[in-house]
């Protein structure tokens, strides 16, 4: 029962991270390997705002989310847009270029974080008294983080499925070639998709900072987990990503409690392997 509750809480954060990544890849067609670094940047941002400015984390998240959107907007305009333009008409080129460019970005962001915050593990203590949930004592900060992730994730689903903006985003994700025919500015929408993904990464990162210890070197692991969830859920499949995120959170908590916390990444990779061999289109994806 402890595993179930803690796993669901962890899974909520993972699901949110994966949602952001699936937006970036699905809509903007950018494979962002620096995604985990963006997440960490937001996590450090929260710690900084909490420790030096004394802002309560919940207020800080409200500030971090738009900052993430803005960062994503700038990144897309400055870095990704020229690559998209260059790759026009050459399938596969954008994928390779975006992988390489964001791989470089990964080292830039990691380097900046190492200089600013050092390589040590960081954490804050915020609302860490236990709360009884279904007979399991869960720290309040975890519950709040879970609530934030649930709120942001469900908000996104509602936005994508029942708003005009969501319809436009989905149209670009589905057929970027035909979207201009109905008067959609694909460039603008891609930028919005990328920025929205970055904003979700920031919210995910900030909520991680509320309850978990992290260091500037953890980015790769976050990116990796988000990527694996996206693939498990099926690329561009929002509900799939949510379900896969919870599943991964559960498996990871189970492995950490029953076997060894050092084996969680191995468990993640095992799942990835099984998915690749058994259903490469994703557990919830349709065969294309």
């Amino acid at each position: 029962m402890t595993t179930l509750v803690l796993g669901l809480v962890l899974g909520g954060t993972y699901a949110l991270l994966a949602l952001g990544l699936t937006l970036q890849y699905g809509i903007a067609r950018i494979m962002n390997l620096a995604y985990g670094e963006v997440t960490l940047l937001a996590a450090f941002g929260l710690v900084f705002l909490f420790q030096t400015a004394g802002l309560p984390p919940l207020l800080a998240i409200v500030m971090i989310a738009p900052a993430g959107y803005l960062t994503g907007w700038i990144l897309y305009t400055m870095m990704m847009r020229p690559l998209v333009r260059r790759a026009a008409g050459k399938p596969g080129k954008l994928e390779v270029d975006s992988i390489l460019a964001t791989f470089g970005l990964l080292f830039v962001l990691q380097g900046i974080m190492l200089v600013l915050f050092g390589a040590n593990f960081t954490s804050i203590s915020y609302l860490d008294q236990g709360v009884n949930v279904l007979g399991v004592s869960v720290a309040l900060n975890r519950l709040i983080a879970f609530g934030i992730c649930l709120f942001a994730g469900l908000g996104l689903i509602v936005l994508l499925n029942w708003s005009r903006w969501g319809l436009i985003l989905r149209a670009v994700a589905l057929t970027p070639g035909s979207a201009p025919l109905v008067g959609i500015d694909v460039n603008k929408v891609s930028r919005q998709g990328f920025a929205l993904g970055t904003a979700l990464a920031s919210v995910g990162g900030a909520s991680i900072a509320m309850y978990q210890t992290f260091s500037a070197n953890d980015g790769v692991v976050f990116t990796m987990k988000a990527l694996i969830i996206v693939i498990m859920g099926g690329v561009g499949n929002v509900a799939g990503a949510l379900a896969a995120g919870f599943a991964l959170g559960l498996v990871e908590t189970f492995v950490a409690t029953t076997f060894d916390p050092g084996l969680t990444l191995a468990a993640t990779f095992t799942i990835f392997l099984v998915v690749l061999i058994w259903r490469p289109q994703g557990l919830f994806g349709r065969r294309s």
């Binding site: 390997l33 992988i99 693939i231 050092g262 392997l273 490469p280």
Partner: peptide, 28 residues
């Protein structure tokens, strides 16, 4: 064998985390 039968993106993702995986396994 697990990734090269599929599209290139899976290979990239797998190799991206592979070093960290091997490192954690050996450490463990």
């Amino acid at each position: 064998l697990s990734t090269l039968r599929l599209s290139g993106i899976y290979f990239v993702i797998f190799t991206f985390g592979l070093a960290e995986l091997v490192r954690q396994l050996i450490t463990w």
